[in-house]
């Protein structure tokens, strides 16, 4: 390899405009080879636009990007030989069987017929699709389509894998299955960049998280760093009797050095905590001692809304306009 540290993805000052809307305002980030980076942001933040530029589907109005060491603007073919892209919408071919989908992509990657067929069998097995390999993909469930889509993406063993919101629209079980598959992939040394709207997903899968909003990178770091900035895990109690909410909030606030958020409607009180399970145990004992009846008590992660609120000072805007402009 030429230089170290080796970055599988390097984006510098990416700008993309659609008419008078600017989708990306100079985005910079770098993904070291063999690591997982999650690009986290709400709808319309520019995540898909960034992925499309890095995968040569779209060209930047300014800035440069290298993927697997090749310039996305001037060395598109070399880049395409080394990447895999799973787009937001599953792009499996419904009129082909699962096996035919993989076989076709193998052939288009010039693996040769026999090798493409072997690879298709292997991938069907790896992704628990062997039993349905000869069914038309249009008859697959959402989770199966996603798995096939992902298998299709890695047919040619890409060095760098891009997944654009890989689990959007999946039920929790299908999502967990897909996460397991991604874990295995990453274990084999593939560099992975995924976009997501879920902090939980970013945290579960990624080494590094790039938070992006309105086309700008607003934070970058591992999930621990980010959550520290947001205030980390939160302790939440839901009481049975609304009358006891105030008392419960007081107990919750005892060990914490932050303000307790009280929501009358849901009879809940929430406070950021850094001591995790220990705080949970202490609060649980204190609530029982005080004779407060509890419907729910637990640790809760900050939501993407809260991360945004903290990082930007403004809640997530539904930037649908911008999203439409990117269509």
């Amino acid at each position: 390899m030429t230089s170290s540290p080796t970055y599988a993805i390097e984006a510098k000052g990416l700008v993309k405009r659609f008419g008078d809307k600017t989708a990306l305002h100079g985005v910079d980030f770098a993904v070291p080879a063999g690591t997982v980076t999650a690009v986290l942001g709400p709808n319309g933040a520019g995540k898909t636009t960034a992925v499309r530029i890095l995968t040569t589907l779209s060209s930047a109005d300014a800035g440069t990007a290298k993927v697997a060491g090749f310039d996305v603007a001037s060395q598109g073919t070399q880049v395409r030989r080394r990447i895999g892209l799973t787009a937001q919408e599953a792009t499996v071919d419904g009129l082909l069987t699962g096996r035919e989908n993989l076989q076709m992509l193998g052939e288009l990657h010039h693996l040769g017929k026999a090798e493409a067929s072997k690879r298709a069998d292997q991938l069907l097995e790896d992704f628990s699709l062997s039993d349905s390999g000869d069914r038309l993909a249009r008859d697959y469930s959402g989770g199966m389509r996603r798995r096939l889509d992902l298998a299709a993406t890695i047919v040619a063993r890409p060095e760098v894998l891009f997944l654009d919101e890989p689990t959007t629209g999946l039920d929790p079980r299908a999502r967990a299955e897909l996460w397991d598959v991604l874990d295995q992939l990453v274990g084999r040394g593939t560099t992975l960049m995924l976009t997501t709207q879920y902090l939980e997903e970013a945290e579960r899968l990624a080494d590094d998280i790039v938070v992006i909003d309105h086309g700008r990178v607003i934070a970058q770091g591992d999930s621990r760093e980010l959550k520290r900035r947001v205030g980390g895990d939160q302790l939440q109690v839901v009481v049975r009797e609304a009358a006891q909410l105030e008392h419960a909030a007081k107990i919750l606030g005892r060990g914490a050095n932050a303000e307790v958020q009280v929501d009358e409607g849901s009879r809940s009180a929430t406070v950021p905590t850094r001591s995790g399970v220990a705080a949970l145990a202490a609060v649980s004992v204190a609530l029982a001692d005080a004779g407060i009846e509890v419907d729910d008590l637990g640790m809760r992660q900050p939501t993407l809304d809260e991360v945004f609120l903290t990082l930007t000072g403004s809640p997530v805007e539904n930037a649908e306009e911008l999203q439409e402009a990117t269509r």
Binding site: R80, T91, D93
Partner: peptide, 13 residues
Amino acid sequence: NNGAMDRFRSLPI
């Protein structure tokens, strides 16, 4: 309309 174009365009064909 079914994403096939993006899939093809991300391939080295």
